[in-house]
Design a protein around this nucleic acid. Sequence first.
DNA 1: CAGAAACGGGG
DNA 2: GTGTACGTTTCTG
Length: 638
Amino acid sequence: MVKRNIVLLDIDYITHDEEAVIRLFGKVKGESSNDIIAIDDSFVPYLYVLPLGDIDACINDINGLKEDGEIEFTKIEKVNKKDLQVPKEFIKLTLKHPQDVPKYRDIIWDLDSVKQLREHDIPFYRRYLIDNALVPMSELELEGDLIDSFETIDSDDENLEILKLTCPPKTANTDFQEFRMMSFDLEVRNPHGMPNPDEDEIIMIGIDSNVGIRKVISTKGDEFAQDDEMGFIEVVDSEKEMIERFVETVKEANIDIIIGYNSDNFDFPYLRDRAKKWEVDLDLGVDGSGLKFLRRGYANSAAFRGLLHVDLYLVMRRYMSLDRYTLERVYFEFFGEEKIDVPGERIYEFWDNGGDELKNLFKYSLDDVVATLKIAMETLPLNLELTRIVCQPFFDVTRMSTGQQAEWFLVRKAYEVDEVVPNKPNMTMNNIRERGNNSGGYVKEPEIGLHENLVQFDFKSLYPTLIISKNISPDVLHKDSVSYNSKFEDFETGYDEIDMYLDENPSEDVDEEDYYVCPEHFFKFKKEPQGFIPSALEDVLNERFRVKNRMKQTEDPILRKSLDVQQQALKRLANTMYGVYGFLRFRWYSFECAQAITAWGRQHIKKAMKEAENYGFKAIYADTDGFYAKYIEELKKE
DNA sequence: CAGAAACGGGG
DNA sequence: GTGTACGTTTCTG
């Protein structure tokens, strides 16, 4: 029996002897080359069934399906959980394999005695992280037996340890880690339009890193051997060798995070095709596996097991708001300098012509990876903190919209307070658009002209504050105050249950004192108890407050910086929480809550503008949570 | 005009 | 794979 402290980089599961085995990918803290794969075969998939009427009748029906051989499961039990704060008895069904869930789900749902299935669409590895309270990219304590090999692990890395867990892992602490990072970029000779991997060869592979490796691998460049400035060129004999050198470089440097720009869609698919042509193994997975493409809707993500691939393009689209997200544009935004640029359609000319043009192409190739790594160093700390708050794999978090980040944060919160999470609204939800769009924040078009003596007014986190102070949450929304209940009929989230809790009294007996009533729509939110979302949001804001206090107390500039990024991540998450109400397909979608927030928001800013006028400040431009005003002496009252 | 398809990033 | 982006612009019938 051994104990290992690792940093949890990634997680997945594989099937072994028809059973799911969780694999945790980590590296030994403080060491550059010790990778660990921990396997855990003790975790099993489950889902919840909400019976329509009598729970025992429902259990009978489900058992009946099993006897008929229609479905398979290993355990059926009654459990008490909360559903939007209403205590309910659910049936917890434990299945043999994660893939049995989608396989049998519809059959169970079709039973007359079944009202709903819940938590049937939570990927197995995410379930594992949530139920074991694990924090990715943080330190983790593992306890188990070292084993020599495992059937599906075929790695030639002699530093790799395989550990079979004998008890669940524990999160130890969240010390800041130095991750070994590498950016890379391909240049292709494409004389006929966009690169075509069947014909157009890779001519350069650029690499930069925070572990001392910075180079461009190419089949040309001998002519610059005496040129000091061009010492970064590594010349090889063929494209095949170029790809092999790239793979070796990543392996030898024991990289934790590999970074590209649009690499999900360009560099890795291209590399896959060219590597296949030359029969080169891209076996960069810690377990010896190769490059995998994971379907994400219509797009793909390029992934290696245990080696984190970040496509910085996806990160940048969330990180800042720009009209375009080319590497050049993003780099300029950060550093205020232009990158060396070679127009894509002319790269082959620079390559073919040689001389100074080729020299410039090499510089361009290096500049691309240097820029990519620089931007990564600026933006990944925030994404690391978000990963630790959201508690989902770093790979996933860098590819999630902010709304999804908030949603997965809430899924874990729900688990912590014994809530069964709502289902995703189904596609009939599109019909709900018929209700009309949610109106947004109040905007006063700016008065044209050059204004002097301007004063800026801003509400601090207007929407998060409103959600908490007005307790805006679907679990405390008074259903009678909503005029289009019928629209909820096809809506499988369980929201149609809330009246069981709220409408203890007929609506005419409702004591207005017990509710916050929003302007314009008059939706009512119970003052007590605190709603699930306001409560989760308050946790985020309290945590941010604690982090900011720690920041003030510390003298250590590095810790200060890291705490600052943490509080920024918490702020982002808080500001996103409003989004979970406004976007279709989100588990906590609530048109009423979204409308109530913006309605109260408009009321607040208008009120503030009016109040400011009494003091002589005339608003000349306003947007959502703030306005600019100029001082006019005559306006002042009293 | 509505619904479908393309687009982004990358060379 | 306990799965199937996304919001906007441009094209097409």
